[in-house]
Each structure stands twice: as structure tokens, then as C-alpha cells.
Design a protein around this nucleic acid. Structure first.
Length: 281
DNA sequence: ACCCGTGTTCGCTG
DNA sequence: TCAGCGAACACGGG
């Protein structure tokens, strides 16, 4: 599921579903999703009330008020994770952690491939987690500062597409948003990050923001805020809402002449229009 | 059977 | 010393 837009939908869902509610029971499968690997330690959550649901990039951070003080939950959805809400007793596919609420609903942290994470953070001191401390600015919350982005890109010899996946540069941009942002900015994903001119960085900064906002809007229109589940485009029935991602061979939506090309960058599929995003810019 | 995948970390290399 | 790369993780779908 998760890049910034999907995780933002998950954050909004969790807030709407559970803010102010008390946890009455916790269950978990002993998978690698549980960092300490001990489902029993989750008992600390029982009786706690959800006070806040925050997000930086792809990281979800829940703050709960418990009898013995504040407890944090760090939830990362990995490649295939999602938060679902089900009635008590109702099953959810690939459910790894279950939080029963005092209103009869149960929240499921579900994750097929088990690349996600669910761990307790004493005192909700999330900044003590290295993976949180390393995160760069969140485009949706903090905006994208052109000078800061230019400085970060100037420091690396990686291709621009690969640099965009670096969560320390911008938190929340994933493999889909990287292709989409570069398409909007009309930049060749293969170009060295340090070679971008100031106007190009400006375009990129705008492209990242526009891509994230439009994707969020597309998910909202698709009913991603339904109680059942968040709709991801790869799931059954959902259409591909993206301009170039996973559209190899299709006509470029902008120039309508060249066909979308696919290359591998940073070990991942990367989609772009060779005509719109050529070296000439 | 084989390849691919919305993410991140780890180990090796130059 | 360290940036950069590929493999690994785990599982299902085409």
C-alpha cells in the first residue's frame, strides 16, 4: 500500500475511527512485523486511550494515554501493509496486530509480505527511533523548500530518481511518486541529481507536491475513506490513477506521441516519457 | 518455472 | 571512510 498518500489516508482513517477510544484487548501474530517479537509486551496497550495519530512520510505514530503514562505505537506499512477496521469477531486477511476498541470495532494492522513494522515506543519518544530521526521534511506537512532540496541533491552522485527515494531528502516519496513527480517536472529520471539547475529543482519541488496532492485526491474520489479498506490501485477492480507509473508502452498523456518507457533505477521500475523528459529538459 | 512488486536494511566494494 | 550498489527479507500474482 504505502507511499505518502496512502499512509495519509490510513492516518485520517485511524483518527476518524479511534481518536478518543480506549483499547480493550490486543492480539498479534508472532511475525517479523512485531519488532520485539513478543506479542505479550503489547499488553501495555490495554486500557490506553488514543490521543493522537501523526504521520511523517510513511511512518505512522500513535500516541496513547495509558494508566502508566504515555505509550507510543510506531507503525510502518512496508510494501503491502494497511490498516483495516472490522467488527469484533470478523476476520481480516493477513491481519498481524489487532486492537479491539471500546465501541466494538477492531483495528487490524494487516500486512501480506511482512515488510512492515509495529512496535511500542515508551513515552511516545518517536524521535529516539533511528528510522524516524533520519526522516527529512514531509512534503505535505512541511512543503518542499527549494533551497534545501537543491542543497541535498547537490551532495549526491546518484540519479535524481534514486535520490528522490532517499527518505532523508524527502520523507514519503516512494517508487510511484518518484516517477510521477519527475514526469510533472519534465525531468529525465536518469540524470545525476547534482546536475539539476535551480529552475529544474524548482519544477521538481512543485512536481512532488502536485503529484502527492493529486494522488491523495484520486484515492479520496475512489472511496478510499470507506470503513472497509483503503483502495490501492493494484487491488482488484481499482484502476491505475497515475500518469506514467506502470504504463510502459502506452502513449504519453502529455505529448500523446512518444510511448512511456521503463528503465530500472535504484533496482526499481522507473517510468517516463523519453520525449517530454529528455536530456534537453 | 520464472519474474515482478507502493520498502528498508545490510554487507560488500571501490 | 563512506557513498553507492545489489541482495535479502516474504509472499502472491501474472
Amino acid at each position: 500500500m504505502p507511499e505518502l498518500p496512502e499512509v495519509e489516508v490510513a492516518r485520517a482513517n485511524l483518527a476518524r475511527w479511534a481518536l478518543g477510544r480506549r483499547i480493550t484487548a490486543v492480539e498479534a501474530e508472532p511475525t517479523r512485523v512485531l519488532r520485539p517479537g513478543r506479542p505479550s509486551s503489547l499488553a501495555a496497550l490495554v486500557g490506553a486511550r488514543l490521543a493522537a495519530v501523526d504521520r511523517t512520510g510513511k511512518a505512522l505514530m500513535l500516541r496513547l494515554d495509558g494508566k502508566r503514562g504515555t505509550i507510543g505505537v510506531y507503525s510502518h506499512l512496508g510494501m503491502t501493509g494497511k490498516w483495516l477496521r472490522r467488527r469484533g469477531g470478523e476476520a481480516a486477511r493477513f491481519s498481524r496486530v489487532r486492537l479491539a476498541l471500546d465501541d466494538g470495532w477492531v483495528l487490524h494492522h494487516a500486512d501480506l509480505r511482512l515488510f512492515g513494522r509495529f512496535l511500542l515506543v515508551p513515552g511516545a519518544r518517536f524521535e529516539r527511533l533511528p528510522e524516524v530521526a533520519r526522516l527529512g521534511p514531509d512534503p505535505l506537512r512541511d512543503g518542499v523548500d527549494v533551497e534545501a532540496l537543491a542543497a541535498a541533491l547537490a551532495r549526491t552522485r546518484r540519479p535524481i530518481k534514486v535520490a528522490l527515494l532517499d527518505q532523508a531528502i524527502l520523507a514519503g516519496v516512494g517508487n510511484i511518486q518518484a516517477s510521477e513527480a519527475l514526469f510533472r517536472a519534465r525531468l529525465d529520471p536518469r540524470r545525476p541529481a547534482a546536475d539539476l539547475s535551480r529552475p529544474e529543482v524548482r519544477r521538481l519541488s512543485a512536481g512532488v507536491l502536485a503529484s502527492i496532492r493529486d494522488t491523495l485526491e484520486a484515492f479520496r474520489q475512489d472511496g478510499a475513506l470507506d470503513d472497509r479498506a483503503v483502495v490501492a490501485y493494484v487491488e482488484e477492480g481499482a484502476r491505475n490513477p497515475f500518469a506514467v507509473y506502470d504504463r510502459e508502452g502506452e502513449p504519453c498523456p502529455r505529448c500523446k506521441r512518444a510511448r512511456v518507457a521503463r528503465v530500472t533505477l535504484g533496482g526499481r521500475g522507473t517510468f517516463f516519457c523519453p520525449r517530454e523528459q529528455g536530456e534537453a529538459g
